[in-house]
Design a binder for these strands. Structure first.
Lengths: 339, 339
DNA sequence: CATCAGCTTGGAAACGTTTCCACTTGACGC
DNA sequence: GCGTCAAGTGGAAACGTTTCCAAGCTGATG
């Protein structure tokens, strides 16, 4: 592995290392002559500055870390994409880490991002405020929360207000005659899991719908838990006539399980899912969803992080969510089946 | 941003910087006493070694770069996940880059990975052998191709043999009575786009099916091009009775377009897609796919890269593909409609 | 003609590690 | 009791940059 350093470039260009460095980093105190000779040498040697050495000296890496709980969840894949594109515009490269919905892996990546001295971190966290997230705060490393937060950790955040969307969904289902709505909740170890759960309970209570605890099943945001929840819920003596699912991977599992039971969403059981994932609209019938804007979320997170990096303290942002009605929740409850 | 260095740790532990370094990097030439005192100091100060400085000196970063063309394509999201998990097992952290199917962004990320001096690079490349990929090879940076390759760039690779799966699909469709199969091809600037196209032409020719050039439309592996292709193909005077699609995002677009035309896959037009993406099985009817193993591909790529890093020269691997028949291609051609 | 400002330049220190080398210490075999 | 050896240690060089500082040069100014 051949190594070309700034010294080689300087020698070939016939100038000092200092001048070469100035040319490379765009320092204006350079002559046109020096600039052109250095650039020629760089091209000839295919020289690439060593980012480690550069960062070591200048304490700036031009990199940000993005830590998501699960890249395979299309919501987070989208988020990764928008964050990355937004960061690129501002000259930051994104190091994407995948916590795999596991606290130990999250800590491992956080440690790594700290060790790499990234300029800032955007994290959709899981777990409580223990572990490496505490080190991030302790070192005053610029960081923002995205999508999720951690109670007791005071960082700026951009999140979704689940209340509006979930209330719309509950009202909509109630208007169709549903009185027993099953709720497939996310893990209560995540802020989104807790919030959406609270929103649902509040909305259902306000509407006077059944709050039978058997109607609420807790999953882990992964497909298999969605399937299991459906099997549990539809086996009840008084099964729900509608389902609300807290994220799209669980909705995926839920829909698969419903099909396997020989039932049809929309007609046999209404279904609404959180997250407007594109393929949900392709199903037959298309699935009603509670949508929130991934694009805004990514862009805002990057802007907020840049503010923190520059020494500011941005306000946290809460984005709205709203119901999109499709075929999976368009049919009024069949009175012969209700009760 | 408080900075704690190894000197602080050494001072607190009452040993030299050299000894501290040895303890931290697990060098056996240390006394139990030194080890425990250093560890106590590390814990007390919440010290994290500076990865830049460490890498600068030791020329090992324990990081690998993974460059995919599009994280939002579930196939690559899965791939990212498996590569990352496999790398983690061997102590490597993965820096994930997203080329966004654009050569300039691919080059930008490659430059960045080179500059960061990652220990190795796994890349699903696009474009020809120009640009930064040449620098990677020129510097003899350990690298392997995954999924795709570039002609003229001699790197070990793990790819899918599209021939078997596509031949099975064509045979299967022909057996159902289809004589005019439409093919929605990937971009010819990618090796997978070219290969799958060639496999299709060969298989269709061998089976004596129509090779009408109008039946082949070239897309760009993105959903919109799949929709556009469907609109073109189904507007032909003699439209195809079956469609074969070269990747799942285009299949997504294609299916949406078919629905919008008021047609049903399976009955009105048969459809088979490359890539076994989970939600394709949830559609009604479920979509037949040509599957290949993402898990194997990721694991093998990491193993191959490790071999290269250790100075070896692994053999390239070609994984098989195979047809999975589902409802979207289960109905024989209606003789009243054919011709 | 001396002085000065402004531009450009090079030497050298610094960033935080790892690792080479030399040194001390105590145990061991003879 | 002496030489030999292994284990543990610390000082200092090195990794490849950036940046501070001092200094050289040019042309203009008084």
């Amino acid at each position: 592995m051949v190594t070309i350093t700034i010294k080689d470039v300087a020698a070939l260009a016939g100038v000092s290392v200092a001048t070469t460095s100035r040319v490379l980093s765009g320092n204006p105190a350079t002559s046109a002559d020096a600039r052109s000779r250095v650039q020629a040498a760089v091209a000839e040697l295919d020289y690439r500055p060593n980012a480690q050495a550069r960062a070591l000296r200048s304490t700036r890496t031009h990199a940000i870390g993005l830590l998501v709980p699960d890249v395979r969840n299309p919501f987070f894949a989208d988020l990764a994409h928008t964050v990355e594109q937004a960061a690129l515009v501002h000259g930051f490269v994104t190091l994407l880490g995948n916590a795999n919905e596991r606290k130990d892996q999250q800590d491992r990546y956080l440690d790594n991002l700290i060790a790499r001295r990234v300029d800032g971190i955007i994290v959709a966290p899981l777990g409580d405020g223990s572990g490496s997230i505490r080190s991030v705060v302790g070192r005053e490393i610029p960081a923002v929360f995205i999508d999720r937060t951690i109670e007791g950790i005071d960082l700026p955040s951009v999140t979704t207000d689940s209340d509006t969307g979930i209330r719309e969904a509950v009202d909509h289902l109630a208007a169709l005659g549903h009185t027993r709505i099953g709720y497939i909740a996310g893990p209560q170890s995540t802020s989104t899991g807790r919030e959406r759960y609270a929103s649902f309970v509040r909305a259902a209570g306000d509407r006077g719908l059944s709050l039978d605890p058997a109607l609420i099943v807790f999953g882990d945001f992964q497909p298999e838990s969605g399937s299991a929840a459906v099997r549990t819920l539809l086996a009840l003596n008084e099964p729900p006539t509608a389902l609300l699912v807290a994220d799209s991977p669980m909705a995926f599992g839920a829909i698969g399980a419903i099909q396997k039971l020989g039932l049809r969403i929309g007609t046999d059981v209404a279904l609404v899912s959180f997250d407007d994932i594109d393929w949900l609209a392709l199903l037959d019938p298309p699935v009603s969803v509670i949508a929130h804007s991934v694009a805004d979320m990514g862009r805002i997170a990057v802007d907020m992080l840049r503010t923190v990096i520059d020494g500011g303290t941005p306000e946290s942002v809460r984005l709205p969510s709203r119901l999109i009605i499709r075929g999976s929740s368009a049919t009024p409850v069949d009175p012969s089946r209700s009760r």
